[in-house]
């Protein structure tokens, strides 16, 4: 049982450490720099910003 706990704690620590490492790496690489572009990424020329894409199926509102 002790080995089981040791393994779990080790795993938890390892994962926690790698999460922090990945975060640091991502920030350094500038992954969080182009946020405006990211928010625009769901639009394109055919469904651009400003175009409404859903409405009731008939004309009577």
């Amino acid at each position: 049982m002790a080995a089981f706990y040791l393994a779990l704690w080790g795993l938890a620590g390892l994962l926690g450490a790698s999460a922090i490492a990945a975060l640091v790496w991502a920030i350094r690489r500038g992954e969080f720099d182009q946020l405006r572009e990211a928010s625009q990424s769901i639009f394109d020329d055919e469904e651009p910003v400003g175009k409404v894409t859903d409405r009731f199926p008939d004309k009577r509102f």
């Binding site: 706990y5 779990l8 938890a12 994962l15 991502a26």
Partner: peptide, 23 residues
């Protein structure tokens, strides 16, 4: 790539909570 950042972070959060709340 970013997928691994996500995956690792996501797994880490849940491992942490199960450790704290159950183990």
């Amino acid at each position: 790539n970013r997928a691994w950042l996500l995956v690792v972070g996501v797994i880490a959060t849940i491992v942490a909570s199960v450790t704290g709340l159950v183990l």
